[in-house]
Amino acid sequence: MKAEGPVGLGAFLLGLAAAFVLAIITFGNFSNDRFAALLVTPVLAVPVGGALVAASLVMRSSSRGRPLMGVVRGVVAAGLVAVWLMARGAADWLQAPYAFDVYLLIAVAGATVLVLGVDGWGGRWASTPMRPPS
């Protein structure tokens, strides 16, 4: 298992924080308590994402894999969440299912970024061409 997955996950969480800040600016409203989750989500995502990126990058180089590829995957996944958030808008936060679909998407996207960074999926094995039998 390489650090490519966790570094991608860290980049995803940092991008997620940016997406939620964008959502606060676009349709957030501090006079309604139901928007509180919109504020708490990036506050939790930044320290965890920063810790994941920092810890992954200080690991020995043989365990890192391709960190830049992980970062690209994380940023793309965060972009998807940002587009989803903007498309749903304020209605998704104020009415059922209260952005439950957004948090499900975050779980699915995070798991995908992590799995693609693991050897055998998007990692070493997937990019290594197969040799013909000799």
Binding site: M1, K2, A3, G5, P6, L9, G10, L13, R34, A37, V40, T41, L44, A45, V48, A51, L52, A55, S56, M59, S63, A96, P97, Y98, A99, F100, V102, Y103, L104, I106, A107, G110, A111, L114
Partner: peptide, 23 residues
């Protein structure tokens, strides 16, 4: 559902930190 969403998010964050342990 308004409480389940953030709870799922906390689980995602916890699992993210556990992935470091896995590496």
């Amino acid at each position: 559902l308004s409480a389940l969403g953030p709870l799922l998010y906390l689980l995602t964050l916890g699992a993210s930190l556990l992935s470091l342990l896995g590496v």
